[in-house]
């Protein structure tokens, strides 16, 4: 990313971080105090300190981005639409969606079948090779992984 954009992004990120650190500080204030141990041993101690440190550092980041004019961001509808239409976002979300489906199916169907199906569909979608090559690779990988891990090394598989 170019510097100019990065400064603008920093502005947004610093706002996020400030909110997050305040959330942590509030959460740590809500923790029980365990007075019998002395105030110095309470569980809130370290989250509180590091919440403050994060707040401090994000304020510096905010200040820095303000100096660079980071607050002057304009988000137009066209920009968002362009971003959503880009192939990068499409590929990203397809893969993520596939992961979710894969995980949902994992415990319910046979590991080898689900894994092979996942591999095959992903290789096809991203155009890895001819379809039968993809098929062979997927089935082989899924089977070998299952055999080696589950049969030989007794590792639990999902």
């Amino acid at each position: 990313m170019e510097d100019n954009k990065l400064v603008k992004a920093d502005f947004v990120v610093s706002l996020f971080l400030i909110t997050f650190s305040i959330f942590i500080i509030v959460q740590s204030l809500l923790m029980p105090k365990y007075e019998a141990w002395g105030f110095y041993a309470m569980p809130a101690m370290t989250p509180f300190i590091f919440g403050f440190l994060l707040l401090f550092l994000s304020l510096i980041l905010l200040g820095r981005s303000l100096k660079g004019g980071g607050h002057r961001i304009r988000i137009t509808r066209i920009q968002i639409a362009d971003a959503l239409r880009s192939s990068e976002v499409k590929r990203f979300s397809t893969f993520l969606g596939a992961i979710v489906v894969y995980f949902l199916l994992l415990g319910n169907l046979n590991f080898v079948i689900v894994t092979a199906a996942f591999l095959f569909s992903m290789m096809l979608f991203f155009k890895g090779a001819k379809w039968w090559v993809c098929l062979i690779i997927s089935v082989l990988t899924a089977f070998i992984v299952w055999y080696v891990f589950n049969r030989i090394f007794l590792v639990p598989l999902p």
């Binding site: 996942f118 992903m122 979608f125 890895g128 993809c134 690779i137 990988t141 590792v155 639990p156 598989l157």
Partner: peptide
């Protein structure tokens, strides 16, 4: 090609993560 390598790497990531604690 990434299209073949990366899904396989992902499977290994999944197994490794799961295997640690099941």
């Amino acid at each position: 090609p990434n299209a073949i390598l990366m899904p396989i790497v992902f499977i290994f990531c999944t197994i490794g993560t799961f295997a640690i604690n099941g």
